[in-house]
Design a protein around this nucleic acid. Structure first.
Length: 446
DNA sequence: TCTGGGGTCCTAGGACCC
DNA sequence: TCTGGGGTCCTAGGACCC
């Protein structure tokens, strides 16, 4: 009984009810309020009406028209979450957050050591739960068991606002009657596949031999589910998980078709990704553009650079080039830009101390040049122009016209103005104006 | 008005190398 | 001379999780 799993109950909705007493005891639904929003969290009062996470808001509204619909205040949720995580770290430094509202704790990392009896576990977990309610005003469900798997199953059983401790040796009694969907890693597709073989419960699953499961689900998935079905789980609680990708995506209220507009949007998404990379001190080699078409088919196009980049211009150029490989004529409902293959060093650093490196210095420019040659003369989101209104970004282009938004990194957003493509007023900006602002110099010490 | 946004991990095929 | 075998990297897609 060394692993503790904590899950805050209907977290976002609970925070809203805490801060707005008129919402207490009432159905509260937090999610996207736009035309294509989905439910992020439904309070327990809303769940009575069948409202669930990931359900479309339109369905939620028809099931529960009288609920309070809120878009969410993520800054507040982050702050509450930080308080909770801090309490967990007092219990043991070995904490693995899974999201804002969920974390594992390895109690073996605590100064007090692993609680030796179930009573002791109950005392520790009970105190934790009451501290959290006192300090944050939201309730937590807690599970404690010998492994991550069983701790998570236990906290699920404990919901809402409860505590379940699984004593060693009793795991299979609890696990085997549960539906296979209760196992982490069994989603709709895997459940449907297993159902065709009459596998409904975790106990059914445990009776399938490992080779059969591997045949059915593949090497990795088959092996791991076989082990989990027998409550065999030695995955460690790991504190320092480095992020592997950074991405940004937007779903539009209606499908978009204008190629110039799509290109401009991809360029802005690339800017947002670049901003987050720079802020985190990261750069990445592989750039991916995600496109969801009108019929929900999802395509991705990616390109890998010779060296990691975090530069807006590089990311924008590559992303728009990747988008141009996709047939968007039928309409696009979502665009996204992501960067993976991350490094925590920045290639164009001003002070590179290791003189032996790098040939990487030149190579990204080759990519940039290539990308440039494949694009029209005015590139949304990338080219900066200097016209009657002052400096601005090219926001859209095509069909003989160019849309300019008068804004640069150093000026606030200005008006959007449309020019004829051959308008003499439309001149490339002098080089010094080109954003982004110079990054603050970083010194590589190692 | 069906179906968000941020991630992780896996698979499969092809290129390329030894 | 008629066909290996393993490893790595890259791309695209898909399942899954919160």
């Amino acid at each position: 009984m060394r692993v503790l799993h904590l899950d805050l109950d209907a977290f976002f909705a609970s925070v809203e009810q805490r801060d707005k007493p008129s919402l207490r005891g009432k159905p509260v639904i937090v999610g996207g309020l736009g035309a294509r929003g989905v439910v992020s969290t439904a309070s327990y009062e809303a769940r009575v009406f069948g409202v669930r996470s990931a359900m479309s808001m339109s369905e939620a509204r028809s099931r529960c028209p009288n609920a309070a619909y809120l878009s969410g205040r993520f800054g507040v949720y982050r702050a509450v979450s930080a308080v909770v995580m801090a309490r967990l770290r007092e219990l043991s430094p070995v904490v693995e957050p899974l999201s804002l509202d969920e974390a594992f704790v390895d109690l073996a990392g605590s100064a007090a050591g692993v609680p030796s009896s179930a009573d002791e576990v109950r005392a520790v977990a009970g105190e934790l739960r009451s501290t959290i309610v006192d300090e944050t005003g939201v309730t937590a469900s807690v599970g404690v068991a010998a492994s991550k798997l069983m701790a998570k199953i236990a906290s699920e059983q404990a919901k809402p606002d409860g505590l379940v401790v699984i004593e060693p040796g009793t795991e299979l009694d609890l696990l085997h009657p549960l539906p296979i969907r209760a196992l982490p890693g069994v989603g709709p597709a895997t459940a449907a596949r297993l159902a065709r073989f009459g596998v409904k419960t975790i106990g059914d699953l445990a009776r399938i031999t490992e080779p059969d499961l591997v045949d059915l689900l593949g090497e990795s998935h088959g092996r791991s589910l076989h082990r989990l079905s027998l409550a065999q789980d030695d995955r460690p609680v790991s504190t320092d998980r480095e992020s592997k990708s950074v991405s940004v995506e937007d779903t539009f209220d209606r499908d978009l078709t204008d190629p110039a507009l799509l290109a401009a949007i991809v360029a802005r998404l690339a800017e947002r990704v670049a901003g987050r990379l720079v802020k985190a001190g990261l750069s990445g080699r592989t750039i991916t553009v995600k496109t969801r078409l009108h019929d929900f088919t999802t395509l991705s196009r990616s390109a890998t650079l010779p060296a990691p980049a975090d530069d807006v211009r590089v990311l924008s150029r590559v992303a728009t080039r990747l988008l141009s490989d996709v047939d968007t004529t039928g309409g696009v409902r979502l665009l996204g830009v992501g960067v993976s293959g991350l490094s925590d060093w920045v290639q164009d650093d001003l002070f590179v101390t290791d003189a032996a490196e790098p040939p990487a210095e030149e190579e990204p420019d080759v990519q940039v040049e290539e990308a440039l040659h494949e694009r029209p003369s005015w590139s949304p989101g990338m080219d900066v122009v200097h016209a009657a209104h002052g400096p601005g970004w090219v926001w859209g282009s095509g069909r003989g016209r160019v849309t300019v938004r008068f804004e640069t990194a150093s000026t606030p957003p200005g008006p959007i103005h449309t020019f004829a493509a051959d308008d003499p007023d439309l001149a490339p900006a002098p080089p010094p104006v080109v954003p982004p602002p110079p990054p603050t110099p970083k010194l590589i010490l190692e």
